[in-house]
Every structure is written in structure tokens, then in C-alpha cells.
Write a protein that binds this DNA or RNA. Structure first.
Lengths: 256, 256
DNA sequence: CGAATAGTTGACTAACGTCAATACTAGTGG
DNA sequence: CCACTAGTATTGACGTTAGTCAACTATTCG
């Protein structure tokens, strides 16, 4: 169950068997979540660190006018609120986008783990560095790209992040984002997202139906939106670790 | 010289006299910087942590098409690249926007300081939390606001951040951002920034001339763009600490 | 003083938002 | 199995916002 977490952190540092066991132990308290149910609400006291073990979630903030914006997509393996317990309350909400499983970690256990394992210490720092980098990239994406490449970039990023934790994206992958949610990710309106998705489909850049996304030619989509995965900093782990049991899972999910 | 740094960090944690001395010692190596000169270039090896002691800088990333976007404004007291040395290279550039002074800290000295002082440990974590929060707010600002309130929000934020480290904003403050730079902050074009600034001026919300910004009615400007300073998390320090020696500094910054 | 840089303005175009009607889909209960 | 419903997706007509191009003015600096 904690596989995604370990696969993700393995990109940030070499993890020994001990480190992996320690991580599994840390993320031992799991909880099922339902779509659209908030994991954390803005203003709530926060005493836990979350790890997304399965499914998607997002951080979002509300504007006075009732508008929303999704600032981060939280994918399997991602850690949320590493430092937030410092404030004592959440300055943004975290909402599940799919059915899923999260682990809750007592933040008091973390310093101990960090002290015992330099690998974990490094990996956790790397992870928050990655979060920052993704945020900055989103700022650029939303600020300096037209609608279609903007959406394409989100798709490329999600695909790369899923690939990095071992989801077999080559055969298509679950795409839970509704059009209004994608609008809140990209700072657009749902209607315009619809039109932009249509052009991506019409140009054969994506195949999206029944909440499944297939990118027939990843290079072409990346070229279309000038996506380069370097800002994700997925460079540390071995290729093995990045793409495990491809064929096994491919068979499983063959049907589109 | 390190006053801004200490004033800023004092918002994140209570700092003893010892802590302050330690911070001064950490930031002892200072360097003058010139406007538009990069402090760090994307791809460069990074072995230093920077602290902005005087003047403004920014982080920016370039797009293939030659477009730029400024992801962070770095104001006096701000720390840059706390964790980046983990990657070994810079994934974005840092460029000075004004003449100024930066301190360079050897990252190897930081763990020691953190171990010796819980106050500094907490303050540094708080600082990177604030950076994250500012990034998320920028995403919302640029994604869900029209041009004039978007710019107004940047002005409100800068004003609040300067106020928090003791710059006497009530009498007007130095505003080094050229219109094309403000365009890169907000994800707009310079022409449209110009028009939006004009409407802000025409509505009496700001007074901007000769690179000096005066906000005659901060509440009105904040209301105009629905700015609330809570995401900056400037809540820890005492009011004294936040607004020290108003007139003394007024003289000081007049020259900058 | 002239050259370079920054700011301003107008006319026009492209991108995106708004409103509203319609179609599709999945789940529900008869 | 068929309505019925609520949520989601799609499409068109139209309005608004922001971008583009280009001329012109103001400021700065050598």
C-alpha cells in the first residue's frame, strides 16, 4: 500500500531496506477517503501529516466571490502538510478528487525518523523542494501559455508524475478531473476547458473518454506545450524503480 | 545590516539575543549587487544560501519562446534557496531588481545553527512555509483576478511584507518594478500593466511616480482586490518588532 | 545635446468569459 | 425495462478582457 510513497521518495534519495521499512511504519495508519470530501478544511487545526497512498486529491483555496482555485494536485505517493503543523491550522483546504487511501502521520514521529535515516531526511527535503518547483511551474504555465497548451502541460505533468511512481501511463490512465476542476487548476472557465480539450482531441494529441486519458504520442504533446520534465527533479532513482512491472500491469488495464 | 533578516524571522519564532547574534554571524559575508545582474543563473551550481539584506530581487524562469515569468519577489529579509543546495544546481534564476546587498551563507553552517537554536530552526521552517503560501496566493491572484485587482494585490502584498520588516510604507516606499517586470510578475503584457496602473491611479487607489509607491488608503486598496494578509502568516512577532524606529528607517530607505 | 530606455496612448485583433440551450451519462426507483 | 433526475459535457451567440502593433512622449544618462 505504501509502495507509491516509497517509489516517489526513492527519486529524492537512495533508500535502504531499513528506510523503506521505516517509511511503511510511519505511514501505517491509513484511512479511506471519498471524492469531494475535504481531508482538511481551511482554518482547521492540523495535527497530522498526510500521505496520499491511492487516488487523487488537491489543495484549493477559495476567493470571497465564491471562486476556487486548485493550487496543487496531490497524486499517489505525494506528501501533504509536511511543515504546516508549525502554524497549527490549515491555510488551505485539501479535498479528495477520487475515492482513495491516505495515511496519517503524527508529525512528532518525523524528526525521529529524519534523525535515524539520512536517506529519509534527504528524501523529505527533496519532496518539498519538488512541491515548490511544481508550484512555480504552474505559475508560469498559467501565466504565459494559451489555453490548449496550458491544459496539455497539466496532462504532461500528471503523466510524468504518475509514471515516476510506477503507474503504467502508456496504456492510458485514470483521469478523474472533471472539466470544472480542470478549470480550477488552470485558472480558466469550464466552458473554455471544454473547447480546449476538444482541440487537443481533434488534433489527436490526447484520447480522453470515460475519465480515462491516453496520450498516443507523448513527445508530440510535450512539444505542443513545451513541456520538459526537468523541473520535477525525477533524476535520482534507477530506471528500474521508475517503471516497474510494466507488462504485468499493462495486461491488467489493457481495455480502454 | 542584518536587521531586516532578523525582523522577518522574528515573525516565525521568538528569537533570543543569542539567536540574533547567531543570525548576524551566519549572514556575515555580504556582497553588493547591481540591478539586472543575475545572482544565480538557471543551471548554475548552487553552493550558497542567499539572504536579501537590502534591495529587491526576484526568481524568474524563462520559456522557450523567450517569454519570462517572475515567480517570487525577494524583498529585504527574505531567504533564497534554503534547500536548493540539495539539487546541486539552480532550477531557476535569481536576478537583482535594484542595487542591494545580499549575504551568502554556507549551507553547511545551517544544520549546526538549527541544532543549536530551536528558535532559528522554527523560524527557518516558517520562512519556507511562508514562501509556499505566497506562491499559492500568486497562483490564485493570477488565475482568478482581472488585471487591475491583480496588480493591486501585488502592491498590497509587497506593502505588507515591507511593513512587516519595518519599512515605513505609510510615507510611500521605493517601487523599483518597471512595467514590463510587473507584467512578468502578473502574467500580463507591459501595455496592459500600463493601462491597469492608470485605472488604479485614476481611481485614487495608488500614487505612483518616479518609482515611488504611495497607497493613500490601504483599506480601500485591500478591499478593491480582496487582499487579506493572513496568508503571509505575520502573526508571531510583537507590534514593536514589526514597526521599529519608523523615522530612522524612513531616512535610510529614502536613498535606496 | 542625443541616444537609449521606459512609459503612454490609440486602433485593432485574438483569446477568453458569459449566458443559455441542448445532449449525454450514471444512478434511482417504479 | 423504462422513465426520471442530477450532474456533466457540448455547442452557439455574444460580450469583455487582454494582447498586438505601432506611434508618440517622457525620462534618464552619458
Amino acid at each position: 500500500m505504501q509502495t507509491y510513497l516509497i517509489r516517489k521518495l526513492a527519486h529524492g534519495a537512495a533508500l535502504s531496506e531499513n528506510d523503506r521499512a521505516l517509511l511503511k511504519h510511519l505511514a501505517r495508519c491509513t484511512r479511506n477517503v471519498e471524492p469531494h470530501k475535504p481531508l482538511v478544511s481551511e482554518g482547521d487545526p492540523v495535527q497530522r501529516v498526510f500521505v496520499m497512498l491511492r487516488g487523487w486529491a488537491c489543495r484549493l483555496k477559495l476567493l470571497p466571490g465564491g471562486q476556487r482555485l486548485i493550487t496543487d494536485l496531490i497524486l499517489p505517493g505525494d506528501i501533504s502538510h509536511v511543515q504546516t503543523n508549525l502554524l497549527g491550522y490549515a491555510d488551505h483546504s485539501v479535498v479528495a478528487l477520487t475515492r482513495g487511501v491516505v495515511a496519517e502521520i503524527d508529525p512528532l514521529e518525523i524528526p525521529d525518523a529524519i534523525e535515524r535515516s539520512p536517506g529519509i531526511a534527504r528524501a523529505v527535503r527533496w519532496s518539498s523542494l519538488q512541491t515548490d518547483s511544481i508550484l512555480r511551474q504552474a505559475l508560469i504555465n498559467n501565466g504565459r501559455r494559451l489555453s490548449a497548451p496550458r491544459i496539455a502541460h497539466v496532462i504532461c505533468e500528471v503523466r510524468a508524475r504518475l509514471l515516476a511512481v510506477g503507474v503504467p501511463v502508456e496504456v492510458g490512465f485514470a483521469w478523474p478531473l472533471k472539466q470544472d476542476e480542470l478549470a480550477d487548476v488552470t485558472g480558466m472557465t469550464a466552458v473554455h476547458v471544454n473547447r480546449s480539450l476538444k482541440t487537443l482531441r481533434d488534433d489527436g494529441l490526447i484520447l480522453l473518454q470515460q475519465r480515462r486519458m491516453l496520450v498516443p504520442d507523448a513527445e508530440r504533446l510535450a512539444a505542443f506545450c513545451a513541456f520538459t520534465p526537468d523541473y520535477l527533479h525525477f533524476t535520482y532513482a534507477s530506471a528500474d524503480e521508475r517503471r516497474p512491472q510494466l507488462h504485468a500491469i499493462a495486461l491488467e488495464t489493457e481495455r480502454l
